[in-house]
Amino acid sequence: MSTGSTPLLDARGVTMRFGGLTAVNDVDLTVREGEIIGLIGPNGAGKTTFFNCLTGLYVPTEGTVSYRDRVLPPKPHLVTQAGIARTFQNIRLFANMTVLENVLVGRHTRTREGLLSALIRGPGYRRAEADSREKAMALLEFTGLADKADHLARNLPYGEQRKLEIARAMASEPGLLLLDEPTAGMNPQETRAAEELVFAIRDRGIAVLVIEHDMRFIFNLCDRTAVLVQGRKIVEGDRETVQNDERVITAYLGEPLEQPSTDRPAAEQPADAHTTDAQPTEPSE
């Protein structure tokens, strides 16, 4: 918040309801150029749903998302075209395409060659194709996958599949990259490498919004962190603000034992969005 640079992403009052279930409730979030923003919260807090609202996979029930002062249409390919790229929580690579082809698909919005030019294969087509390959290889170099360019994506080890997803997203030359749990399932070394990678991405002038459960990763990385609990943003700020906020501690660890115990047990590990969020709303329906 201290930086005075221009807002890149501006989400205002984003609300997402599935029937009676409010998965995301009136969330505001701003990302400025060159920032790394964290988004944390217990399981089922609505983080991924919020991501899906930002990227057009879901049409938010209320609220708007704008990128560089333009309201984004809720169509995934138009969002990517505008300059927001994302990765997925459970890796969604094109498993039977090669590593290089995966990245080339990421370049789809930045190339124009249609069916006719592919059939005719004129010099313009060849130039564009060579250029795409060069840029894709550069990205593979950047993520350290260049020597595996011809392997099938499905045959990569887990950590490299995560890297490939990032390379594929970066191929669309985004201004903002959304990472959905980039270190899930990684060991500490791989997590540290992922940290370096995110910093390197930021150094290329790409802002990053990252969902993560690994607190050390988040607090090492992020300029600001927003906390979502049961679909609401309860706090946003730097490391100290978030770590010392009572509501955050409650959300993650439950209420202190000394308090006279109410009949409601502390929600140590809310199972998932549907059970935790649905309960309060069900009686009212």
Partner: peptide, 18 residues
């Protein structure tokens, strides 16, 4: 490549700008 991407995972393909 866009066709194959759609065959492999249409949601991911759309998220990649197709």
């Amino acid at each position: 490549r866009a066709w194959i991407a759609i065959r492999e995972d249409e949601t991911a393909a759309e998220a990649m700008g197709i």
